[in-house]
Design a protein around this nucleic acid. Structure first.
Lengths: 115, 115
DNA sequence: CACATTGTTCGATGATCATAGAACAATAAA
DNA sequence: TTTATTGTTCTATGATCATCGAACAATGTG
């Protein structure tokens, strides 16, 4: 149905990356996404905000080059662009994810959606 | 003359850190600060903004726990809290600084102020 | 077809923010 | 003491942003 625009690696900026990760809701989402390395329907990750707000956050993450969004049927599948981001800015995303895991252990088990 | 408040390591948050680093002016400043590991009077680093604006940016960096500011005479000396931040969030600041250096090599030599 | 599911887009709103100028404070230098 | 240097604080302004509800679009299901 919908086609998404994704920045190429050379279009990804460091400040854009940091800004996208500096929001608690987005950082938490990326953190959850990193736990399951496969694609994730948006609904599978608990979010504390309205779906329109989450749509906005996903757009920010996508435009920052952090996630890739693909649509399949009615749902859109989101996956982390870990390798690409790591290739561009080695260590940054990994260190941030590690720090986030240790700072606030949110959802230990990913099996049960909290919402 | 003036005493500054600095957050303790346990008061430093990851999102606060990322947000502080996500502004180009601030990131550039931190980058310059990292080159000279000693204390730096604010005037020694070229900035593209007014001094009142820079005062604001330094406040953000200080409150995020990234820099320590000490006053001596009329000038305030700023230094990077690299070890403390690294102890709290290992690898994050170092990776960001490295990425910043490789993304935009701004002032190779710090001798001549660009403005 | 009607209905449910999933997510986007479009205002609107209140908050935060980056910016700058003006006034001020503190110290140093003449 | 007068002047210069250095930086802060205050106020204002325009921009960006996070948030939500309502309307919409596309697909799947009865």
């Amino acid at each position: 149905m919908k086609q998404y625009q994704h920045p190429t690696p050379d279009q990804i900026t460091l400040t854009g990356l940091l800004h996208a990760l500096s929001d608690p809701v987005r950082l938490n989402y990326v953190q959850c996404l990193a736990r399951e390395l496969r694609e994730c329907p948006c609904g599978a990750i608990p979010t504390p905000v309205a779906k329109s707000t989450m749509s906005h956050h996903l757009r920010v993450l996508r435009e920052a080059g952090i996630v890739r969004i693909r649509t399949e049927g009615t749902q859109s599948l989101t996956s982390l662009r870990l390798h690409e981001v790591e290739a561009k800015f080695p260590g940054v995303l990994k260190a941030v994810l590690k720090a986030a895991d240790e700072e606030g252990p949110i959802g230990q088990e990913s099996s049960k959606p909290v919402l």
